[in-house]
Simulated assay, not measured.
Amino acid sequence: MKKKHNRETEDANIDMTPMLDIVFIMLIFFIVTTSFVKEKGLIVNRPDDAQKSNKPSKNVSIKIDANGFVYMNGRQIDIERVEANIQSFLAENITENAVIQADKETKHGVVVRVLDQAARAGLPRLSVMVDKE
């Protein structure tokens, strides 16, 4: 007896292996041929979170008039006590900056003494302003 094949009893199967092989080969091809280019741009140095504080930062403001009198944050101080006054200011405020405003008639020796004392007090950034008149 001859067996008759019926279409309903046969299941149509498609072999997926060759298609998966091609997909993986294409994936490997694209990964290997992709060039990774480092984008050029500006490098930004951001401060660490440990340096942040709740207190706002203030600058130390030192003014020297034509007669050599020194004023720190609006009050007159002795030229020999600049370092001590800056240290007491730094105990209460967080800053690295000092702005020294000298009159154009001020002697350079006085300005240099104030700069030296500010540097010894622990201020790494010092700026000197002079009127151009």
Rank of each mutant, 00 (worst) to 15 (best):
V112S: 15
N45A: 12
N85C: 02
M72L: 08
F36L: 14
K52M: 13
F89G: 03
Y71S: 09
E105G: 03
F36Q: 14
M16S: 10
I22A: 11
I100Y: 02
Q51E: 15
D48K: 08
R113W: 00
T9I: 03
P56N: 09
N6P: 00
R46S: 12
F36H: 14
A121P: 05
K55M: 05
N73A: 05
N13G: 11
N13A: 12
E83T: 01
A66T: 04
E83N: 07
I64W: 08
E92P: 02
N73K: 03
I94S: 14
N6Q: 08
N85Y: 08
P56A: 07
K104A: 13
V32Y: 09
F24R: 10
S88E: 14
S88M: 10
T106R: 05
T106F: 00
M129Y: 09
D116P: 01
K63D: 13
P124V: 02
A102G: 03
M1F: 08
F89S: 03
Q117A: 04
V82M: 11
I64A: 02
L126R: 15
K55H: 02
I14F: 14
E8S: 15
L27F: 10
M26G: 04
D49S: 13
I86A: 11
K107S: 12
D48L: 05
A50F: 00
K58T: 07
N93I: 01
V130E: 15
D78G: 06
I94Q: 15
E92Y: 01
A84V: 02
I94T: 13
D103P: 08
A84T: 04
E92L: 03
N45M: 10
Q76W: 00
F36K: 14
K132T: 05
L123F: 06
R75H: 12
D49P: 07
S61H: 08
E10M: 07
A91M: 13
N85I: 00
